[in-house]
Design a protein around this nucleic acid. Structure first.
Length: 758
DNA sequence: GCGATCAGCT
DNA sequence: CACAGCTGATCGC
């Protein structure tokens, strides 16, 4: 399906008319907090070099595509080069927008210092785009640490580590700005909900199954209490809190009943639900054949588990159909196979409130009893099953995600319901349950779903998320009891931890800046003779950043801003990026590869060989000078980071994980080492940039919030992983019991015990 | 030819 | 390993 989709031609032209910017108020939002700059960067006239044909992926076979691309780029360069400055185009009318964007305080991303592109005869962004004016790495730099790229403060008197500390402070401060905004939004739960309820326009989206708008019926229904709250099929634990005898705060008790393997009790549920769906494993003859789930990640592979009802159920839980035998022949074995094979059952962790609401469950056809399908973010393993033929019910998601559903999957608009951020919305036909979207800090448009029943029972589904301390402090979460948490447990193992995102962004920006600066040795030598001597240029550096379809844009934005470059994206991906409606990103995009020093490319191209090939068309020929003659690849991956050797990752205590300095995962520019095979011209860096929560993130999130039951959503296929995850959840619970909710040390010290840190 | 699904491969 | 894809093959329509 991905293949089919990607083959579709990307003739889409940038939309000139853009929808209004989405509401603000998120923490660590992917979206800039400024009004849309309302500029749709035109595909530059000289961009034939980047035509879809030349940049499309290798659909017509291996090297041809690269050859073709190279040829076209070379030709374009030759055709064009006389025209002068490759960086000029598109700049002029962007100045003001850029300036305002750089000055915005809502963006926590790195530098705001456009600087010389350092391309020899070339020049630069117009001076007034620079705010504060600062040449971090250009030939005229005094030193690498001349100024803070956040606040402009002169840092040259400081040691490098002091300078780094300062810059990190600045970056962190940018984060707290968002916290303030969140506070501003909301004083207490009641007010927010009330505000939402009183705001007719925002309050309810009511759509019937055909997608027709019908009359809002909020108040009547919501105020009718128990009767209105009956779920269609059965009564269950969700009704417990209707009973006044059930103190919602008494959650320890309800946890007590939860077993160690947190989900084992789901087994019975699953079997009751539809016993016929529990299918035998690994039998080629059996209908519905499939292999056992992939062994839990991070654990030694074991022989395939015995087929049990539970494993059979969990087999369907893998987001991806990896390692699965073919399912084709189920419906009609005599034929070559038919897609009409009975749908897999939807795994329990995607079903909320007895399944009246599901999250990221689109590959199970129609789910009986589901009145609202939620999509947490636009990654294929979560939207799998969605297509133009979707007709099983309304889809709720963030605006960016909604845009992408229409643009990329052609899902019919009548099924798509975009929800605002940080606002309670009553979900139609779901017994008055409300949902509030919170920024998941995963990829653009990614959301946490916070559901609230009429009886004030809160259920949080994280989708995929990267937890942060500001997320813990979010007024929608902090200080509230969350009865159930569906948790992204991708990295729920002490082995996995990642540096703070901002540290990584800062390190990358710093690295690239320093690579653009003259070699210190040479510069110093020259200066020894003649201090004013311009440092010799080191050539034009191209920065190639690997990315999936959505995600990691922050890396590109951060680096681009640090070096004053635009960001080139293949023309085929351009509409996708526009659909994110991120004004900052949009303002930096260009489809002209010569117009930007920072390029985004599919992760598959990020290898030494791939970099070489990518660079080639930009190299000089007898007929033209080089656009670029060096290339640096950035490969964002969560897997390469090794924590400090002193860290106890075998059996750490929760306290240790939460607070010990050993569990800081520092990351600085000096930690960035090129991979083997890198040289002066072609260098590849793997950076520990993760958009999932690491182990410490998860621990802090779950110890910092008042959480009842936790349900893992990843890695639940293997018994051992399940057990280990459950053990951690148990430890978190004990820690909360014993020490109370975790708070950041600095905050505790500043405000003293007992004070809320909101 | 197109959409959907899957095996295999990063 | 696998973050979250991509690519080609196959099948139904």
């Amino acid at each position: 399906m991905a293949g089919a989709r990607s083959k579709s031609k990307s003739t889409a032209t940038p939309k000139s008319k853009k929808p209004p910017p989405k509401p603000n108020g998120n923490i660590l939002s992917y979206f800039s907090k400024v009004p849309a700059a309302n500029q749709s960067p035109k595909p530059s006239s000289g961009a034939n070099a980047a035509s879809p044909q030349s940049l499309k992926r290798k659909s017509d076979g291996g090297l041809d595509e690269n050859e073709e691309r190279r040829a076209k780029l070379t030709k374009a360069l030759e055709d064009e080069f006389g025209t002068g400055d490759i960086n000029q185009e598109e700049e002029d009318d962007d100045d003001d927008d850029l300036r305002s964007l750089f000055e915005d305080d809502g963006e926590d991303l790195s530098s705001s210092a456009p600087i010389s592109l350092n391309t020899g005869e070339t020049p630069t962004l117009p001076a007034k785009a620079t705010s504060p004016p600062l040449d971090l790495a250009g030939p005229r730099s005094e030193a690498k640490t001349a100024d803070c790229f956040m606040c402009g403060k002169v840092l040259s008197g400081l040691s490098e580590s002091e300078a780094n500390a300062h810059v990190n402070d600045c970056l962190d401060r940018a984060g707290t700005e968002m916290q303030k905004r969140a506070e501003h939004d909301e004083i207490c739960e009641g007010q927010v909900i009330e505000a939402a309820l009183n705001n007719k326009e925002k309050e309810v989206i009511v759509i019937d199954d055909e997608g027709h708008d019908i009359k809002p019926k909020m108040d009547t229904e919501e105020s009718t209490g128990d009767a209105a709250f009956k779920l269609p099929h059965e009564e269950g634990e969700y009704f417990d809190d209707l009973d006044p005898a059930n103190d919602p705060s008494d959650y320890e008790d309800e946890e007590e009943e939860e077993d160690l393997p947190n989900q084992a009790n789901q087994l019975e549920e699953a079997e009751e639900e539809d016993p016929s769906r529990v299918e035998p494993l690994n039998s080629d003859d059996a209908p519905g054949t499939r292999v056992a789930p992939i062994a839990p990640m991070f654990l030694p592979r074991k022989p395939k588990p015995k087929p049990t009802a539970f494993t059979a159920l969990m087999d369907h839980t893998a987001e991806k159909p990896k390692g699965r035998r073919k399912r084709r022949n189920q419906a009609n074995p005599s034929e070559g196979g038919t897609p009409q094979a009975p749908p897999r059952p939807c795994p329990f962790y995607k079903k909320l409130f007895q399944g009246i609401i599901t999250v990221d469950a689109f590959r199970y056809s129609k789910i009986e009893g589901c009145n609202a399908y939620f999509l947490s973010h636009f990654h294929s393993d979560h939207y799998m099953g969605l297509s133009s033929s979707w007709c099983h019910g309304p889809i709720y998601c963030s605006r960016a995600t909604a845009n992408l559903l229409k643009l990329r999957l052609r899902v019919k608009a009548q099924y798509i319901h975009e929800l605002p951020w940080d606002t309670d919305i009553t979900i139609p036909n779901c017994n008055g349950i409300k949902v509030r979207l919170l920024d998941a800090n995963h990829c653009p448009g990614s959301a946490l779903f916070l559901f609230t029943t009429l009886a004030n029972r809160r259920v949080l589904h994280t989708g995929d998320f990267r937890a942060t301390t500001s997320m813990i402090k979010h007024p929608s979460l902090f200080g509230r009891h969350i009865h159930e948490l569906y948790l992204d447990t991708t990295y729920l193992s002490p082995k996995y931890s990642f540096p703070h995102t901002l540290d990584v962004l800062s390190a990358c920006s710093g690295l690239i800046s320093s690579l653009m600066a003259p070699k210190p040795g040479i510069a110093n030598m020259l200066r020894a003779f003649r201090p004013s001597a311009p440092a010799p240029p080191r050539g034009h550096l191209l920065v190639l950043i690997g990315t999936y379809s959505i995600g990691k844009e922050r890396l590109a934005v951060s680096i681009a801003r640090a070096i004053g470059s635009k960001i080139h994206v293949p023309e085929s991906k351009y509409p996708t990026y526009l659909a994110l409606e991120d004004p900052l990103l949009t303002s930096l995009l260009t489809t002209n590869p010569h117009n930007a020093q920072v390029h985004l490319t599919p992760l598959g191209n990020i290898s030494i060989q791939g970099l070489k090939e990518y660079l080639e068309p930009f190299l000089p020929t007898p007929r033209k000078p080089a656009s670029f003659n060096r290339i640096v690849g950035i490969k964002p991956t969560g897997w390469t980071y090794t924590p400090p050797a002193s860290r106890n990752t075998v059996n750490p205590t929760v306290r240790e994980v939460l607070n010990s300095e050993d569990w800081e995962s520092p990351y600085k520019r000096e930690d960035m080492k090129p991979v083997r095979g890198s040289n002066d011209t072609v260098a590849l860096y793997e950076v520990p940039y993760s958009e999932h929560s690491g182990f410490r993130d998860l621990t802090r999130f779950c110890c910092g919030l008042d959480i009842g039951k936790i349900i893992a959503t990843v890695g639940v296929g293997g018994e051992k992983t399940r057990r280990e995850m459950a053990a951690w959840m148990e430890k978190w619970k004990e820690d909360r019991k014993r020490f109370g909710l975790w708070r950041e040390k600095a905050v505790r010290e500043k405000e003293g015990p007992g004070t809320s840190f909101i």
